[in-house]
């Protein structure tokens, strides 16, 4: 069953149309990858889904409900969480406050004890956060901030996690660690829509994927199909047709 479905969504910034009728879906419990070159509209898809970019046409369905035009905070309450590019942790707030903000939308749904248990759970998943608990967010390294951002998003107990380039700007080791954590999310039953520039790494952890080009889906399939696709290999994996 698809948890998220976009049907010919058009969206843009001012006069620029970044999405020209994008249709895709993310199935429950799966990791869906969005691939494409810079400016293809991957981030815009995420922003349109979570209400940060106004939708000019088409519809977004989340958990069977038409959510086109819903304000971000309402979508968050419905179980959608976003990790923006670079994490955007709150630099002036402590790591602990960052995590508690993630649980902001849970008031009335979960008890304090449940939130505390989840804090503990996040520290188990990301041990570095336990040590940094009372430090300011901006004192963490890039990789640590990315983990904090993911943990903050998970604190809302999302059904769907939107991840925008979680490995960008990280050292190879940190990038691999972040992607390993993303793969582990599948075990928690969290559905993930992943935008990633590292196509090979993304397709290794994803179940399905879409390739975007100038605001349109040009290719879709399972991760294995995409990995085997001549177009994907030529355009994103640095292989020539002769080498395939």
């Amino acid at each position: 069953m698809s948890l998220l479905r976009l049907s010919s969504v058009r969206a843009g910034y001012g006069g620029l149309q970044a999405l020209r009728g994008v249709s895709l879906h993310a199935s429950e419990g799966e990791i869906t990858a969005l691939l494409g070159a810079n400016g293809a509209g991957k981030t815009t898809v995420l922003n349109a889904v979570c209400g940060l970019v106004p939708i000019a046409g088409g519809d977004v369905f989340f958990a069977g409900e038409r959510v086109t035009g819903y304000p971000t905070e309402r979508l968050v309450r419905m179980g959608l969480a976003q990790v923006p590019e670079g994490g955007k942790v709150f630099g002036e707030l402590s790591v602990r406050d960052n995590l508690l903000l993630g649980a902001y939308s849970r008031r009335g749904r979960s008890s304090r004890a449940e939130v505390r248990d989840d804090l503990e759970e996040m520290c188990r998943m990301f041990p570095v956060l336990r040590e940094a608990s009372s430090r300011r967010g901006d004192t963490l390294s890039g990789g640590e901030q990315q983990m904090l951002a993911i943990a903050r998003a998970l604190m809302s107990r999302p059904r769907l996690l939107l991840l925008d380039e979680p490995s960008i700007g990280l050292a190879p080791m940190a990038a691999a660690e972040v992607l390993r954590q993303v793969a582990a999310l599948r075990e928690l039953g969290t559905t993930v829509l992943l935008v990633e520039q590292n196509v090979a790494a993304a397709l290794q952890i994803a179940d399905r994927g879409y390739v975007l080009e100038v605001g349109q889906v040009v290719l879709e399939g399972t991760a294995a199909e995409l990995l085997a696709s001549r177009d994907v290999r030529r355009a994103y994996l640095g292989r020539d047709y002769e080498g395939i």
């Binding site: 940060l52 971000t72 905070e73 968050v76 923006p84 955007k88 993630g102 809302s156």
Partner: peptide, 8 residues
């Protein structure tokens, strides 16, 4: 933006 992404 980041605050509203946290549900605020």
């Amino acid at each position: 933006e980041a605050a509203s992404a946290c549900g605020v």
